[in-house]
Amino acid sequence: MSSEKPTLKQRFDRWMIKHGRVLVIGIPYLWLFLFFLVPFLIVLKISFSMAEYAQPPYTSLFSWIEEGVTITLNFGNYLFLLSDSLYATAYLNSIRIAAISTVITLLIGYPMAYGIARAQGSMRSVLLMLVILPFWTSFLIRVYAWIGILDREGLINAFLLWTGIISEPLIMRQTEFAVYVGIVYTYLPFMILPLYSTLEKMDISLVEAALDLGCKPWQAFAKVTLPLSMPGILAGSLLVFIPAVGEFVIPELLGGPNTLMIGRTLWNEFFANRDWPIASAVAIAMLIFLVVPIMWFQHIQTKQEEGQQ
């Protein structure tokens, strides 16, 4: 190698390297920016606009855009959300249902994840595959499966009536109970997988050390296993809780008309009432509530990535 000026080809290559980096970052960045971030800004803007009830959504939006600059912020939509108790109820219901479902999912998922992590070699792979398999099958179909089970004319009622335990069919579908079943059922793999991956990484000799130092098994679990699996618990819980808050399909198919959830409300405002600004305001309100858990989730993700590196 000489200290002379680089050849044309070298210069071209270096230019490519410098700009290749920008290109590799830029393309996905631009895509996500345009199709993920910008839409939220539009939702935010529309949530402050006025709805023109009589007109189809297109023109109402168009007139809004024309006046875009002159329009002052219209908090009417948000005030409406506050004034109508329907929305507050839907919010609180969603959070309550999502929180309770998350806890139930954790209670079912933790022992399963623990059992899988402690299973022997090939058995472990098989069990893990069995957890993942339903996750790959259609979500809609998994919710659908419960219709046939929980229905008034469904399998549980048929069985219980046949055994004579009950004489009248139980109302299970179109209740909050059915929504819990649906959420727990469909989101269980999301809980088990992060739990499994933290539990699997954990050195079993840590528990043995705790036992050796005089802990009873439940103490060893509470003092060693549980704290060490905290990242998995948090990741799994957030993976269940956040989407569950905005869930639409499960309350729609399994819940009753009284099972108000915010995702359903948004859907109805949009598709049934065609009130785009209110739907946008609902979305923004939901987002404000979810920002903290979402950022928390991202924080956990980043920390785990750094831990791996």
């Binding site: 993976l239 956040i242 905005g246 995702g263």
Partner: peptide
């Protein structure tokens, strides 16, 4: 990954 689908 976690954004409620109705919002997206």
């Amino acid at each position: 990954l976690v954004m409620p689908e109705v919002i997206t």
